[in-house]
Design a binder for these strands. Structure first.
Length: 509
RNA sequence: GGGCCGCUAGCUCAGUAGGUAGAGCACCUGACUCUUAAUCAGGUGGCCGUGGGUUCGAGUCCCACGCGGCCCA
């Protein structure tokens, strides 16, 4: 069927060429989006006709032919608008009837009216075929449900499912609003290396690659933190970077090896300031997007109304599990975890504390600042001014997920070096996620970094929350999937001299 | 890594007890000048994920593998 369909289409394209019609024309002057048309002509009464001319373009998603007339819907970035062709009104109506069908991308020009049934419609006077696809469109009513197609061929998902285009529009909008907010506050957007000699700023396993020109292995960054702080050392007061982070770890509904973060640093600020900034930034985005601070995620109401709850990590775990992560012995924690059936790979107090938190994180649903993490799990955060066993750190937790992480940044180079050395001890214990010693970073701190507040937000998780998406892959346009078998396009090519090789990625597999 | 589920037409899905492969949409032909899942009549379309096994006979039962999903680690 597919083969036959493509052959028929290729024949039709040849036919068009012979008739002097270019099936792949160069441009079309589109004056209105589908949304513009629907907004500007909302006021029309049913059956009311205007003489207002518009031109628009998009893909034909549905077609209802009636002999000497036809209705169809055009889809673009913003949605769909109906159009109407008629033998007595549309130039070249016969061409439409013979050659235009669902899936074609066309440009139309005409006047706007509202149908008797109340739908804003363009009465087409002229139209132009802009491309004739070789493949059939997905089913118009059910769209695409097969997750494999959604992820591997996102373009098909976007064609078939209007919500998908909308979701990625919102993603773009969220990032735009974050920039708008920070730029207005005087932050500079900067860029730091993705290729790094050694990598740090987070506990994660890095990707390794090779730089030919120096013949050395390099890492893809696992965070932007250590370089952004160098900007602060150098004299920038407020910087941020939005960018791709790479962590060579598992894939789950909330993890993806390649994801997007924003980190920002503000000199002369502490984590209290960062909490206020986080509240302000997130509520700015939510309010601008939805006009309200209450949203629904997977059937649960999430209320962003300020101020958000603040709870110390120690208090929360003690309340839920009866374990005091500051006072109780390693042995008591180990026994407790064992009784819960939790395995701890690395025998270290910090790792046990992380596991304890994992047991209770799902109990936090509404936006909550989890405060004052122990020093051993926060190697880049400054010690708390009132209790040196913990740090001035918070994580923003929503719906059991870490959405943001922030500290009063550690700027004492001696303490920082000690923290790094402790991380090296963990490496020796087999913890491949422990941080590497970045001597240049310590050297930078020796030149003096002002007191600084820093904040990192996981953009993908924020987008999941604000688009009601259950899986992080739903908000990453082209998520990782295992390489598929060879993609069959051979029979499209008539020229036998053109030998199409098998997909390279399959060869490597 | 472990458990469970799925893979049938371009898409969404049926497939009984192991006995010649089905529907809707899409596509092709025809009718139809306000339809909107348009309607009506006719038609085309299948490596049933891949490989092996059991059987007179496998989409269906068994084994292995591939890809995907969900849950757990």
């Amino acid at each position: 069927m597919l083969r036959k369909f493509r052959e028929e289409r290729l024949r039709e394209i040849e036919e068009l060429r012979r008739a002097g019609i270019n099936p792949y024309p160069y441009k079309f002057n589109k004056t209105h989006t589908t949304q513009d048309i629907k907004e500007q002509f909302q006021y029309l009464q049913n059956g009311e006709v205007t003489d207002k001319r518009v031109s628009t373009a998009g893909r034909i998603m549905s077609l209802r032919e009636h002999g000497k007339s036809a209705f169809f819907h055009l889809k673009d970035t913003y949605g769909r608008v109906q159009a109407y062709v008629r033998k007595d009104k549309t130039e070249n109506f016969e061409f439409f009837k013979d050659h235009i069908t669902v899936g074609d991308i066309v440009g139309i020009e005409g006047v706007v009216f509202k149908s008797n049934t109340g739908e804003i419609t363009v009465l087409v006077e002229k139209f132009e075929l802009l491309v004739k696809p070789l493949r059939p469109m997905p089913e118009k009513w059910h769209g695409i449900k097969d997750k494999e197609i959604l992820y591997r061929q996102r373009y098909v998902d976007m064609i078939a499912n209007d919500e998908t285009i909308k979701r990625f529009r919102i993603r773009s909008e969220i990032i735009r609003l974050i920039r708008e907010f920070l730029n207005a506050k005087g932050f500079y957007e900067v860029e730091t290396p993705i290729l790094q000699y050694l990598t740090g700023g987070a506990s994660a396993r890095p990707f390794v690659t090779h730089l030919n020109v120096f013949d050395i292995d390099m890492y893809l960054r696992i965070a932007t933190e250590l370089h952004l702080k160098r900007f602060i050392v150098g004299g920038f007061d407020k910087v941020y970077e939005i960018g791709r982070i790479f962590r060579n770890e598992g894939i789950s509904y909330k993890h993806h090896p390649e994801f997007t973060s924003i980190e920002l640093y503000q000199a002369y600020a502490d984590y209290e300031d960062m909490m206020n900034l986080t509240e302000e930034l997130v509520t700015y985005v939510v309010e601008k997007l939805f006009g309200t601070l209450k949203i629904t995620y997977q059937g649960h109401e999430i209320d962003f109304t300020r101020p958000w709850r603040r709870v110390k990590m120690r208090d929360f775990i003690k309340e839920r599990l009866g374990i005091d992560i500051l006072e109780d012995s390693d042995e008591k924690m180990a026994n407790f975890l064992k009784s819960k059936g939790v395995e701890v790979d690395i025998q270290d107090r910090g790792h046990m504390i992380e596991k304890l938190w994992d047991l209770v994180e799902n109990e936090v649903v509404q936006p909550t600042f989890l405060l004052d993490h122990p020093v051993e799990i926060s190697p880049l955060a400054k010690r708390h001014r009132e209790d040196p066993r913990v740090t001035e750190r918070f994580e923003l937790i929503i719906f059991g997920r870490e959405m943001a992480n922030a500290f009063s940044e550690l700027n004492d180079p001696v303490d920082q070096l000690e923290r790094f050395m402790n991380q090296l001890r963990l490496r020796d214990l087999g913890d491949e996620e422990a941080q590497m010693l970045d001597k240049d970073f310590v050297r930078a701190l020796e030149y003096g970094m002002p007191p600084t507040g820093g904040l990192g937000i996981g953009i993908d998780r924020l987008v999941m929350l604000l688009t009601d998406s259950p899986n992080i892959r739903d908000v990453i346009a082209f998520p990782l999937v295992r390489p598929e078998g060879d993609v069959d396009i051979e029979d499209l090519v008539e020229n036998e001299a053109l030998e199409i090789p098998t997909d390279e990625r399959r060869e490597r597999a």
